[in-house]
């Protein structure tokens, strides 16, 4: 039995949830044992949506999960896995997923396959691909144990289509303990209100210091992103300069993205940055330095000044139907 944990926000599953469905179906051979866990203070709507895809949906509804914390999620997921005797627990490798899944593995005494880009059965166990050394190396890692915990990198599988018939939704009671809520959430601030979340974005427009100022960055990078319905990313230098928030930083210290299209504008391509985006399907680079390392990973490159090329791009994009 494979348990997939559904990552959700604002009453809807995140994109990665549908990818976990695909992966879970492949691993169970669609034998009807795939089970999804939806935990939250009001998981109903998300559970109904996921039931269109998965034969069995468990909901955990508890005030302890508002908002969810690493330790409350660990309790819920570990309890579900133990109760159901899950052979594998699949979690989306979002920041939050990466935060609680190691705890789940430790609690279950299970091996952890972390941030994997591919996952298959291998005899009694599983074999996965994952990146290491700032995404310059692909590792093949295997785990064999009664339960294996896996966090799955966004984009590792295609999003699933709905199943022929809707699954059954049942509620699961989880015995939370006082320590599970010892971490207090004082406040939350959304960084990218109204914009596509970077990890979910199909298109990412990222900019570097070459734009000269926060205003120009806003006009050109954010402007182009808006025109494309894209997420905005930036280099560490841009964040260090205070032009954009940390939440938009791409690379080793920031986010890892793998969109369908990544536009790197005045981004030189330091290895730390590349580690955060080199799995993008198509990469476009615009840089005035023809020797910039970004061109080595680019599908399409324009050698030129972003201050001239980006306005031209905005115009060309506006001409699309």
């Amino acid at each position: 039995m494979i348990l997939i944990v559904i990552d959700h926000a604002d009453g809807a599953p995140r994109k990665s949830a549908y990818e976990l469905v695909s992966l879970g179906r492949a691993l169970t051979g669609d034998d009807g044992s795939l089970t999804a866990l939806v935990a939250g203070d009001a998981p109903g709507a998300v559970a109904q949506e996921i039931a269109r895809f998965v034969p069995r949906v468990l909901t955990v509804s508890a005030p302890e999960l508002a908002p969810p914390r690493a330790e409350t999620m660990t309790r819920a997921v570990a309890h579900a896995a133990t109760t159901l005797g899950a052979e594998a627990v699949l979690v989306g490798a979002s920041r939050f997923g990466l935060s609680y899944s190691p705890r789940v593995a430790m609690r279950l005494g299970a091996p952890l396959l972390e941030d994997v880009t591919a996952l298959e059965r291998d005899g009694d166990g599983y074999v996965a691909k994952r990146l290491s050394y700032l995404a310059r190396v692909t590792e093949t890692v295997a785990a064999s144990a009664p339960t294996v915990v896996v966090s799955v990198k966004p984009g590792a599988a295609a999003a699933a289509d709905p199943a022929a018939s809707a699954g059954e939704v049942t509620e699961l009671e989880v015995p939370f303990e006082p320590d599970d809520v010892r971490v207090g959430v004082a406040s939350r601030r959304a960084a990218t209100k109204g914009r596509v979340a970077l990890e979910d974005a199909d298109v990412v427009v990222a900019g570097g210091r070459g734009f000269g100022s926060a205003e120009t960055f806003d006009d050109l990078v954010v402007g182009l992103a808006d025109a494309l319905g894209a997420g905005v990313g930036s280099t560490r230098a841009v964040v260090d300069a205070g032009w954009r928030p940390y939440g938009e930083q791409i690379g080793q210290t920031g986010k890892t993205v793998a969109p369908r299209l990544y536009l790197a504008l005045a981004v030189s391509g330091a290895v730390q940055h590349l580690s955060g985006m080199n799995r993008s399907k198509v990469i476009v680079a615009v840089n005035k330095d023809a020797d910039a390392p970004i061109f080595r990973v680019a599908d399409y490159g324009i050698v030129g000044d972003v201050l001239e090329v980006v306005p031209a791009l905005q115009e060309a994009v506006a001409g699309l139907d």
Binding site: L131, T140, V141, D299
Partner: peptide
């Protein structure tokens, strides 16, 4: 806890 079977340089062909 896991078994490392192989490490290869990540290479993706680009246009």
């Amino acid at each position: 806890a896991t078994e490392l079977r192989a490490s290869e340089i990540e290479a993706r062909s680009r246009r």
